[in-house]
Amino acid sequence: MVEWAGYVLFGAALGTLGGLFGIGGGLIAIPALGLLFGLDQQLAQGTALVMVVPNVLLALWRYHQRNRIDPRHAIALGVAGLVCAWLGSLWAIGLDAVAMRKGFVGFLLVLAAMNLARLAGQQPAPAQALRHGWPWLGALGGVAGLAGGLFGVGGAVVATPVLTAVFGASQVVAQGLSLALAAPSTGITLLTYALHQHVNWPMGLAMAIGGLMSISWGVRIAYAMPERALRAAFCGFLVVCALMLAFKS
Rank of each mutant, 00 (worst) to 15 (best):
W134L: 10
G121Q: 05
G168V: 08
A74H: 03
L77T: 04
A174E: 02
F104H: 01
P161Q: 08
I75K: 12
M100Q: 15
A80E: 08
G142T: 04
A147R: 02
W86V: 05
V79Y: 06
N115C: 13
G154L: 03
S170C: 05
L90C: 06
R131M: 13
L82K: 08
Q122T: 12
L146H: 00
F151Y: 09
D70M: 07
A80D: 11
V98M: 14
F107S: 11
G148K: 00
W91G: 05
W91P: 00
N115D: 10
V158Y: 01
H132M: 10
L130A: 13
A92P: 03
L111A: 14
Q171H: 05
C84V: 09
A129Q: 15
G176E: 03
Q65M: 06
A80Y: 09
A165M: 12
R72A: 11
V158H: 06
G94M: 09
A85P: 13
D70V: 08
G121R: 08
N67Y: 10
T164F: 02
A112F: 13
L116F: 14
P161T: 10
F107H: 11
L90G: 13
G155W: 01
G121V: 03
V162N: 09
Q128H: 12
L163W: 00
P161G: 09
V153R: 04
G148N: 09
L116R: 10
A113Y: 10
G106E: 14
A169M: 01
I69M: 09
G94V: 05
Q123P: 03
L111Q: 10
R72F: 08
G154A: 12
V83E: 14
V173C: 00
L163T: 07
R118P: 00
G138L: 07
G176Q: 03
A144L: 08
A139Y: 04
L130V: 08
R131D: 15
V166R: 13
G149Q: 03
Q122K: 14
G176F: 01
V79E: 10
A165W: 01
V83M: 13
G78E: 02
T160P: 06
P71C: 12
S170E: 05
G81I: 04
G155L: 04
A92N: 06
R66E: 11
D70S: 15
V143R: 01
N67K: 14
W136N: 00
M100Y: 04
G121Y: 06
L87R: 01
V79D: 10
A156Y: 03
A113V: 12
V157M: 13
I69W: 03
V158A: 08
L95Q: 15
P126Q: 10
V98Y: 11
M100V: 02
W134R: 02
L109K: 12
A99S: 15
V105K: 08
G88N: 06
F107R: 04
F151G: 02
G81S: 12
Q128W: 05
A97F: 02
L150Y: 00
F104M: 08
L150Q: 01
L137T: 07
W86A: 14
L108V: 07
